[in-house]
C-alpha cells in the first residue's frame, strides 16, 4: 500500500489529474500468528517530466518503462515490431508489454504542443535499472522521440538529469505525408501497417516537407514542421 499511496501523492504533486493506478498492489504477507508483516523495503521512485517543444505535433500517450536489460531501439538497426507500432500508430501497448520490461507506465492521453506532463515509476533499491521513454509525433508517418536505456541505478535521491531530445524515424514507413497515411489530426489516416516500405533502420528524422514547402501530395502544412529538440525531459529521483 505504501507504494500505491506514494504514487498517488506524487501524481497529485505534479498536477496530473488521474485516478491512482492499482497495478502494483503489494502482497501483504501474513507472518506467524496471523500478524501482518511490514511492507518490504521501499523502492526507488523517479519522476519523469516532459514538455512538448513542437509547434503542431501532438505526442501520443507516452510509454515509460523500467528494465534491467534490453533497449527499445538501436540507431541504425531495424525497429522492433513494438516500436513500429508506436512510431506509426502512436500505440504504446506493445512497448509496455515488451518481455524485458519490469515496470511500465502509460501517459494519459495525447500531450499537446507546449504542454508539460509527468509520470512516476519505481525501481528496485539495488541492481541494474534503466529507464526508457517513447512517444510518436502523430502528424508524421513514423516519427518518434524519447530515450532508451538511461542508467538510473546510480542516481542519488534528489538528483536530476535534463535532456533535450531530437526526433527519430523508425524507418518502417515511407515519409510520403500522403492522405490516409498519417494517424494524427492533420490527416486521420492509417496508423500501423506491418509492411516495411522504408529504409528499415532507426535514424534521426529528417523533418517533414509539407505541402507549403513543395510536396504537393502532402497533407501536412508549414505549421507541422519541426526542428530539434522536440521534447525536453527531466528525470528526477525523488526517493
Amino acid at each position: 500500500m505504501t507504494k500505491l499511496i506514494m504514487r498517488c501523492l506524487l501524481v497529485a504533486a505534479v498536477g496530473i489529474i488521474s485516478a491512482c493506478s492499482s497495478d502494483n498492489n503489494n502482497n501483504q504477507n501474513t507472518g506467524t500468528g496471523g500478524v501482518v508483516t511490514p511492507p518490504p523495503i521501499q523502492t526507488k521512485l523517479f519522476n519523469v517530466e516532459f514538455t512538448n517543444l513542437t509547434n503542431a505535433q501532438p505526442l501520443s500517450p507516452v510509454a515509460l518503462v523500467l528494465h534491467t536489460e534490453g533497449q527499445l531501439w538501436q540507431l541504425n538497426q531495424a525497429s522492433s515490431d513494438a516500436l513500429e507500432l508506436l512510431a506509426e500508430a502512436g500505440d504504446n501497448s506493445a512497448i509496455l508489454a515488451e518481455d524485458f520490461v519490469q515496470d511500465s507506465v502509460s501517459g494519459e492521453g495525447v500531450v499537446m504542443p507546449g504542454v508539460t506532463r509527468a509520470l512516476a515509476i519505481e525501481a528496485p533499491t539495488s541492481g541494474d535499472a534503466y529507464l526508457s521513454l517513447a512517444t510518436m509525433l502523430v502528424n508524421t508517418n513514423d516519427a518518434f522521440t524519447g530515450f532508451t536505456r538511461m542508467d538510473v541505478s546510480n542516481m542519488a535521491t534528489n538528483e536530476s538529469v535534463t535532456l533535450s531530445i531530437a526526433a527519430y524515424d523508425s524507418g518502417t514507413e515511407a515519409n510520403s505525408e500522403a492522405a490516409g497515411s498519417i494517424p494524427g489530426p492533420a490527416d486521420g489516416g492509417e496508423g500501423y501497417n506491418s509492411v516495411r516500405d522504408d529504409v528499415d533502420f532507426v535514424a534521426r528524422h529528417p523533418g517533414v516537407v509539407t505541402a507549403d514547402d513543395g510536396l504537393t501530395t502532402s497533407v501536412l502544412n508549414e505549421s507541422h514542421r519541426f526542428d530539434n529538440p522536440v521534447i525536453r525531459v527531466t528525470v528526477l529521483r525523488i526517493r
Binding site: L53, N55, P113, G114, E222, S223, R225, N228
Partner: peptide, 27 residues
C-alpha cells in the same frame, strides 16, 4: 503571408522559416 495563426502559443522550439523563392511576391 504564410499564416495568420500561431498553433503553440507558449515558448517552443522554432520550426524554422518557410520562405519561398519569389522575391517580388509569393507567400
Amino acid at each position: 503571408g504564410v499564416t495568420t495563426t500561431e498553433t503553440n502559443q507558449t515558448v517552443h522550439i522554432h520550426r524554422g522559416n518557410l520562405g519561398d523563392d519569389d522575391l517580388t511576391g509569393g507567400k
